[in-house]
Design a protein around this nucleic acid. Sequence first.
RNA 1: GACCCCGUCGUCUAGUCAGGUCUAGGACACCAGGUUUUCAUCCUGGUAACACGGGUUCGAAUCCCGUCGGGGUCACCA
Length: 652
Amino acid sequence: MPNLQVMRHDIQGQTPCLTLYEHLSALQPPGSEPVCNRSPRIAMRATATYPQVDTPVVSSIALAFDYNPPSMSNRKIVTRFAPSPTGHLHVGGARTALFNWAFARKHGGTFILRIEDTDRARSTAQSTRAIIDDLRWLGLDWDEGPDEKADDPYDPQSQIGEHGPYFQSQRLDLYKEHAQRLMQAGRAYKCFKTPDELKAQRDNAKAEKRPYKYDRTESINLPQPTIDKYVEEGRPHVVRFRMPDHDITVHDLVLGDVTVKASELEDFIILKSDGYPTFHLANVVDDALMQVTHVLRAQEHLMNTPKHVALQEALGFESPKYAHMPLIFNADGSKMSKRDKAKTARAAAKEWMKQNNDNIDRLYHEIKEECAGYLDSIGLTKETLQDFLDKKTDDVLYPQAIARFLHIPLPEIDVNDFRLSGYLPEALLNYLALLGWSPGNDVERFDLDFLKENFDLKRIGKSNARFDRDKLLAFNTEAIAKLSSDEFHQQLIRHDGYSRSCTFQIGLGNRFRPFAACYRERSRTLDEPFANGQFFVTDDTKIEYDPKAIDKALLKNDDQGLAVLNDLQPPLESIPTDKWTASELEKTIKDYAQQKNLGMGKVAQPLRVAVSGSTVSPPIFDTLVILGKGSTLARIGRCLQLNTPQQQTEAS
RNA sequence: GACCCCGUCGUCUAGUCAGGUCUAGGACACCAGGUUUUCAUCCUGGUAACACGGGUUCGAAUCCCGUCGGGGUCACCA
């Protein structure tokens, strides 16, 4: 048997990251009953009966028995996306997920979806569902994690993969056991300071302009009997990790080595007073137990990484490789935040108030009228509306109600916002991939398959990127142009259902297909046909006329447009309903234009305004066909009636 | 403020690691022109950048130092 000391020495530099299951099964003679099943939690319990056996020793024994530990370098690549379920998937999160997915796929590895729901106050099951849906809409899939098809993704039985459960709220024992391990080794300790106490210390330090750092002396010098007494009394406390005294270097695959001095690092909390782990502990424990080899995350996590590396050292885990990606900002350089929506809505509402004598009653009632039934479901009352305007709340649903009433667009922040605005997942993904990454060689348009083949960590950039909606729109325009007319039709049906409760399918019936057809070549988003083609489903008697359009197309040059409409009525009337086709209309209208020596513009525009209320619509013949003979003539008639000057009407 | 990261057209970026082929390439936006019944497309052309200052070198966008600028972090959030 090889010398154990030597073996320990050998593994010092590379600390094999084995799950305890592997340690223990390695010790089993072949063919014997396994000491534990695949669950790391049970493996932990198995070792607990041998408290003197810590991880490195087990590794050494494993080595001594000719067990070949899988070293990080030749192990299968494992990445994960670990969102916290506090809302829809943010575009930044989407890019993180995309890169982790692409890296795993490129190397034939495993991609894990793990839900980090250790924030009890903010995590919701609804958000988990939303994030799963957002990821699936983007076309990203995962090898381990919650099952998207399960009725209850939280059900441990339904989760996919052998390192589950994949909800941190279901792994609490595991974190406690590791925290316990650290405490036994003197690497963690209980701290009874209250949040208020600490906040006061921080505030003091700030007021005196001196840097604040948590001071461990008091806590670590607490005599054991006192600690026991406090615990018995049920005093709330947290568990802190004792930072090592040496500097920590993070070997980042994008940024290179980043060293943080020991003096800059403080003892951070690993177990909150409610017994839940903090992000740091849970993240590190899960990455190790799930055998994650590469962590691709946003640069905002860079300063967390030394903490994680220190934890990994103390726990005997090999650090995964880290790659920190540049951040994504708004076009103006501000941080892209969910609050941007609240900000926009608030500004618009305040502007409205200014023009309406600061009358909040009226604002509330008008919103209520516009969004009937919707308000109750989101709990908007006059009081909460006031709170919202006073920035006391940033509730994500209020801005939507306000925006709907004021007809203002809200900035898209979440993946779902882009979905509602009519972006195609392939366009969003393509654009997102270019934020902080580039395949080189002037290649810019590509899909998931391309990424699967070509994604390369080396090509991740270092500097922050601004989100350019114009460019995204251009990508989306191209993506839509690529769709066949049938695909476009199907997509529109889906979008009408997703964003408008099928308003257009109900309103148009079998005219939905020609409606889709005429918008296919003039849409940059899936939403434009509905936003611009509202008049198709508006009642004939409720078309609103844009005054500028009336002036320009109907009244200019001595009511030339009105005359055209008048002239056109009889010939249109004479087209039989069953011959109301584009070619027939074209013939009739062009004949008229030729006869009067008018350009098509002079004839089409008055018609367009009469039937749609504005100067913009799909090609006029298509428009008239979709509307049908009845609607067309009814609208022309009503338009003439409304816009013919008074005297003229009286004179005739 | 302290610590850390970053700095090529307005924006995203190629080029930087292995200095010359870079009078710096592409995309989006913008401007001009063309196509078109409106709109949206589409086509052609154009404007536009190595943050600044030192150094190393025959030669610097590329290597080194400094300055300035931008950003991140500093929670019982993740």
